[in-house]
Design a protein around this nucleic acid. Structure first.
Lengths: 338, 338
DNA sequence: GTGAAAGCGCTAACAG
DNA sequence: CTGTTAGCGCTTTCAC
């Protein structure tokens, strides 16, 4: 079988290459009869125009790059993968290939992969991390770029955010509706933006019911599972004890619940928990965690929409995805009327 | 700033485009002096030759496609991601972009993504699944293809296998070394190839110590967590009871341990367990699972090596990655001397 | 409405 | 040892 090119197709259909090109690209000005004839040949031969040629002509790579940090935890990986799925689904419609790449480290500096340095990508999506130096380098390369769920808010780069304020509000509201008033807070001050959103949601829910809480119930040094456990310890060290705890992330709740268990408390009989994220583990942890789902798939989809718009030169603003969906499991007990 | 092309660089360096091209591609026949001059200009300008042009010239896309099934469990995702990491690391050295894609379903038939149909990829990597029709379609497209950890062994397509026989042998040997002789087997007959490997490793380890076991200890209907639980039930229904159980997958062990727990048995005090995989959950499950690690990262790397060889037209054979690394955790008890 | 011709940026014969 | 030239396969003016 010979190499199938647009010329071959033209020959087979008895027309010129131009005509074939017009048919392929749906341009006007072709007689319906000719169009059908050409379309028929294309269908029969399964011909596809060479992407490589179009790339050269349009000076587009039709690649978008998903940049992942090198050493990330399995949980990060899960996060990435869900976002990636959303991205991939959408990319199909836009005709982009989604290329995975990781930022490697040389001499302690992050270094961009070749696909970016050689501008072989039409756009870039970063997940969570957002090294300022890297961002600057990309800006100087002139490649559109969007950040997904950044831990720290950068200036001048469109982002896809989850609405952590709404998520926190929902998680706490859920507790209130089940009769809880004594609700503690465990979060991480490591990402101040994130912290502020979560705390603000927590506060908004509590404000509405005029609940007073001791300041020892507000813990913001939980940057990981172990630290969350320590936070829980501090909360339980004083009386009164809360009837419920809201944690700004599932992994923190898992740490905090571990602490409660160690002290002989039963969850949810003695203490209820809600959190934010819905990571894989939450379904397998004992007891199964009640949490507000962050829709990572949708974040991926939004990122694709945003990036595609930027590539087309349209002005783009950050977007926030709805984050008010609670998934009810086994860590919340309904309290009798107070 | 003007568009940087090889002509521009040539002009700046006062040479011809050919010379620049030769320098870039490390061809012989350039005076060192000229070479240095050109190299200097290239370094200063951060020039990279347009991938799009090279693609057209070489008729190569420099893409390899990682095909993922559409609806897969989070655990599959984790598997994919680890393989992908290995793949990505290696792809850098070969100069390939790793493009993620999923097989979508139309009218109940799997359909190949555009990147494959339009031959915009130099090779394809499939994970686990291996629909025969799809494979045939790809073969007719003439695109090199490798399978990673296929559940069913296809003919004529190079694969990257884990050595499940070795893994099973290692897992059972580990139990033997700790004094266990009464060791039951739980596996899944759903993937006969896989089953045979696991059982053969289990048998080989046991053969060497002449241990006799009742046939009820051999269970092969555990296609998932719940089924594994049922298998465990059957094993425990008769006496004597084994002192240890080997499961051909972590998720099966988790199901089986659940059954043992329900019956009031303590793990590992009353019953020990080993398995194969080392999935994320095994570290978080209570008790933490002792298991033989399958190195998915390495499988990804091997897949890249294999695929690259095939793309270069070299003959390629399936490879098997070493799979004898046990990760010791909390599900095995050492028995006193018999 | 359709065809001939130029060019996207690079590479590699082929001259000089 | 270096420069000129002709494509790789497509798209798109610009004539006809």
């Amino acid at each position: 079988m010979e190499k199938l090119t647009i010329r071959e197709i033209a020959k087979m259909a008895g027309v010129s290459p131009t005509t074939v090109s017009f048919v392929i690209n749906g341009k006007a000005g072709i007689r319906e009869e000719t169009r059908a004839k050409v379309a028929d040949v294309i269908a029969r031969t399964h011909f596809r125009p060479s992407m490589n040629s179009r790339r050269l002509f349009f000076r587009k790579s039709y690649n978008i790059t998903l940049a992942v940090r090198k050493s990330s935890s399995p949980f990060d990986n899960l996060f990435y993968f869900e976002v990636a799925k959303g991205l991939i689904e959408k990319s199909r419609a836009y005709g982009y290939n989604v290329v995975f790449t990781d930022l490697s480290v040389e001499d302690g500096r992050l270094v961009l992969p070749e696909i970016i340095k050689s501008r072989d990508t039409d756009g870039i999506i970063f997940l969570q991390s957002a090294d300022q130096a890297i961002l600057g380098e990309i800006a100087s390369l002139g490649i559109p770029c969007v950040l997904v769920d950044p831990h720290v808010k950068p200036q001048g780069i469109p982002c896809v955010f989850a609405d952590y304020r709404q998520a926190a509000f929902t998680a706490v509201q859920y507790l209130l509706e089940r009769g809880h008033r004594a609700i503690a807070f465990i979060g991480s001050g490591n990402s101040p933006d994130l912290y502020m959103q979560c705390f603000s949601g927590y506060k908004a829910a509590l404000d509405s019911c005029q609940a007073a809480i001791p300041t020892s119930w507000i813990q913001f040094c939980a940057e990981d599972e172990a630290a969350a456990c320590a936070c829980m310890e501090k909360i339980l060290a004083q009386s009164p004890a809360p009837s419920a705890v809201f944690c700004s992330g599932d992994i923190l709740a898992i740490g905090a619940i571990g602490c409660a268990k160690n002290r002989g408390l039963r969850v949810p009989e003695d203490l209820s928990f809600t959190a934010i994220d819905d990571i894989l583990l939450s379904r397998y942890f004992e007891p199964k965690l009640t949490t507000v789902r962050i829709d990572k798939n949708q974040m991926g989809q939004q990122a694709m929409d945003l990036l595609a718009a930027m590539i087309d030169g349209q002005p783009a603003d950050s977007v926030q995805v709805e984050s008010g969906c609670i998934v009810e499991r086994d860590t919340v007990r309904r309290l009798g009327p107070v």
